[in-house]
Every structure is written in C-alpha cells, then in structure tokens.
Write a protein that binds this DNA or RNA. Structure first.
Lengths: 164, 164
DNA sequence: TATTGTTATACTCTATAACTATA
DNA sequence: TATAGTTATAGAGTATAACAATA
C-alpha cells in the first residue's frame, strides 16, 4: 500500500467525504445566520472582502472571492441597488472600476461580520487551540496540493484578510 | 487564551478560511471533470448516491445529498429527461416514489465514478496514508461538532456509500 | 393530522461568449 | 493586441409555500 500508488485511487475518498461534509455543515450554519440579514453567501463574501479596505477593482474582488467577472457584475449590482456598495472610477486606469462599501455598507459589515464570526466560531468551542492549529497545518498542506494540482487550475485565490 | 473562551471569537477564523478554500479548490477540480460528462455537481451527487443500490425514495435521496425536496424534483427531472434515472412506484407506501438508475445511468455511473475518483485522488498523491488518516480523524471530530451544533440543524446527512 | 412528492414563484448564481472602452 | 468590465443568454440550483394524494 504505497501512499503514492496510482492504482490506489480510492485512498482519498474518506478525506474527500469528510471535507465535503464539514464544509456543507459549516455552510449551513453560516448561511442560516447570514440570511437573517438578507444576504446571500456570495453577497456576504463581498461585504467581508471589502470591509476595512479602501475598496478594490472588480478584478481583485473576483480573485479573492473566486467569482468570475460576469457573475460579479450581477452580485455587485444587487448590493449597489441596496445602497451597500458603490462604484467609482479608478484613479489611474480608465478601464477599471473601484468598488467600495458605502457608509451604510460599512455599518452593516461592522454589525454582521463579528456577529457572524462569533456565531460560527461557537461551533468550534469543543476544539482546543492546539487541536485547531494541527488541523490548520494539515489543511494548509492539502490546500497547497489542491491549488497547485494540474497546472490548468487558476492561481490560488487569496480570500479576505479581515480578522477583526 | 483559554481554548473555550467565548470572548475569543476569532480563534476559528483560520480553520474556517482553510476549510473553505480547500473545499472550493477541490470542487473546482471535481466540477471541471464532471462537466466533461455533461453533469453538474448535484447531478453527479445523485448518480453517485444511486450507484450500486436498488434505488431509493426522494426523502432518502434528499437526506443523503442534502438537496431539499422541491429542488430534488427538478434535478431528478433533468436526469430523467436524459434517460439516466427512472421513477417507479414504491412497493408498500403509495405516497413514495423510488428513484433508480436506468441501464444507461448505471453505465454512465460505472464510467464516470471511478474515473472521477481517480482524477480527484491524484491531487492527494503527495499525502501519505498516515497523514490522511490523521487529517480524517480531526475532520471527523470537527464534523461531529458542526453537525450537532445548535440543535436546530437537521440530523447529520450520511453521504453515499459507494467505495468501488 | 402528518408525510411524500409535485407545482409554482421569484430570485440568485453560473458558465459562456460577444461587446465596449480603454491601455 | 490585451485587459477591465458590461451585457446577453440560457440554464440550474435555492428557498418558500401551497397543494394533492396517501398514511
């Protein structure tokens, strides 16, 4: 049972199942909370990515949230229609648009983000810091493999940096 | 830094980010392959869940794939329109419908499932069996917390048992 | 009354590609 | 020519709730 035996194509199956189920369980938890604020998952992602920044271009926003440009226009449209984000011209590149939170969007971000984090984090209460740290190490290694696999996959996305 | 300190609401954030990014990276990998067969993610889920079974009711299929009944009708409709699954009356309960793979669906399952598994598993090649086993242990513990959190969350789903 | 599955509604996201305007 | 973002199209999944048939 060589760990890199190409014939043993089933060895990753338990990991795949667990990863999927963990994420789905987390997402249910997360979405149920986010929807109370009238936000969808992608909308919250954008709010969280724009929070505590000067705003960013569609391209940057797309790279961070893994939403493609055509879709992003629609999602941002809906947030703009609700007065949560605004578009403004880029200072130096006439092709670019900068998206940023409005005062209203910033207020919502400040209300939702910590509350959302607290809500989701409480599901991790049974797990000590060391346990999480070890899990993180292993997930980080796996992430590296998954993102660099094949080469046809697009460059690693670097999701939001908000940590307050 | 008490591991269960309720005030430390940010301690789970790195885990949440890694879990999300791992799953997204895996899903890109998985979906890219599945789409070559003209299947969407949910459609493949259903195919994989029905494979090597006698079929099952909508309720059971919904519990395993985490797709709600209204949506499930639509997804099954599309698979049925392509001749991959069929509906038949339940033997003992007149309210129930049994969904099962057609010969054509079974053939597609046998073609796609192992190939998909091999495709996805190769992204795990750099990880030894012991490393995966430890990751699995930790994910299983986390899954238990996530699925049992709050109590308002529905019972744990038990995704497919296909392992061939 | 409760459950199974269908139907209906309305929306959000997705993939894809053509298009514009700038660079 | 290449890039940034918009528009158009067509579909597919989602949440929600009302509904019919059966238990």
């Amino acid at each position: 049972m060589n760990p890199t035996d190409p014939l043993d194509y089933k060895r990753a199956l338990p990991t795949i199942r667990l990863l999927t189920r963990c994420f789905q369980a987390f997402e249910r938890l997360s979405n149920a909370n986010v929807r109370k604020f009238g936000l969808t998952g992608p909308q919250f992602d954008i709010l969280a990515t724009l929070g505590n920044t000067d705003g960013m271009t569609f391209r940057e926003l797309g790279e961070r949230t893994l939403i493609t440009k055509g879709t992003l226009t629609g999602v941002v449209d809906r947030l703009e229609a609700r007065g949560l984000v605004g578009r403004c011209a880029h200072e130096s590149d006439g092709r670019s648009t900068r998206v940023r939170l409005t005062a209203c969007g910033q207020a919502l971000f400040e209300q939702v983000f910590p509350q959302q984090l607290a809500h989701c984090s409480s599901a991790f209460d049974a797990h000590g810091c060391e346990e999480l740290a070890e899990l993180n190490e292993r997930l980080a290694r796996l992430l590296h493999s998954l993102e660099n696999f094949g080469g046809s996959q697009s460059a690693a996305a670097n999701n939001g940096e908000n940590d307050d």
